[in-house]
């Protein structure tokens, strides 16, 4: 009975995490999902994973979400999603029906009715049999740290001035610019080419100036 309540709570928390309009509230519902999932894992006999899920899923990841939301800020968005709601619902339910159709015959035979603890110790399985997995985890952690350091690094002020925003690259030239021979920037790529060859003008403004002189 308690497992039914736990699964119901997990599903409710997951639905609320998706339905929440505020990102911070969604992150807290996700933390609730992780906490309830940790209890369910403990009931299933996976004690070590339950502890890791509780500490990492409900603790560390929630702190990361709060940190990221604090930096990026809340953003109001329209209610409608990427796809129409009936289409998204159908696309989500269809794989579930197929998966349930595959799994439920196994379930009816009683294969999943009970579980037994394996003979091997968890530490033996983790360090001896799945030692490569531990190495992969270590490499993943280092790669993640390096990636985050690279992504969150501040761009130097001098390097930022050289970059052209998309809005600057599509500025429409005025008649005054054409008559005075001012170089007009039509795209960031053209501007970069001009920066390599000083004094070289872009073809379109020159032709326009010549036509204006005629």
């Amino acid at each position: 009975m308690s497992s039914i309540l736990l699964v119901a709570g997990i599903l409710v928390c997951a639905v609320q995490a998706i339905r929440a309009t505020r990102l911070l509230v969604a992150a807290l519902w996700l933390a609730g999902t992780s906490g309830l999932l940790a209890i369910l894992l403990y009931m299933l006999g996976a004690h070590e994973v339950a502890v890791v899920e509780l500490s990492v899923g409900a603790g560390l990841v929630t702190v990361l979400f709060v940190f990221a939301i604090g930096i990026a800020g809340e953003e109001a968005m329209d209610a409608h999603g990427l796809l129409p709601t009936p289409l998204a619902t159908g696309l989500a339910i269809l794989p579930l029906l197929l998966l349930g159709w595959l799994i439920l015959p196994v379930n009816s035979t009683g294969y999943l009715a009970g579980f037994t603890a394996g003979t091997a110790d968890f530490s033996n399985v983790l360090w001896q049999q799945r030692g490569l997995d531990v190495l992969v985890q270590i490499v993943l952690i280092f790669a993640g740290v390096v990636a985050v350091l690279g992504l969150l690094a501040e761009v130097p002020a001098g390097a930022r001035e050289d970059k052209v925003s998309p809005a600057e690259g599509v500025r429409v030239p005025s008649n005054k610019d054409l008559l005075s021979g001012t170089t007009i920037l039509f795209a960031p790529e053209i501007r970069n080419q001009q920066a390599e060859i000083p004094g070289d003008h872009i073809a379109e403004p020159e032709q326009a100036v010549e036509e204006a002189h005629r």
Partner: peptide, 11 residues
Amino acid sequence: GQIHLGQSLAL
């Protein structure tokens, strides 16, 4: 019957 293997993969 291999709960520890499942735990290792889940970790």
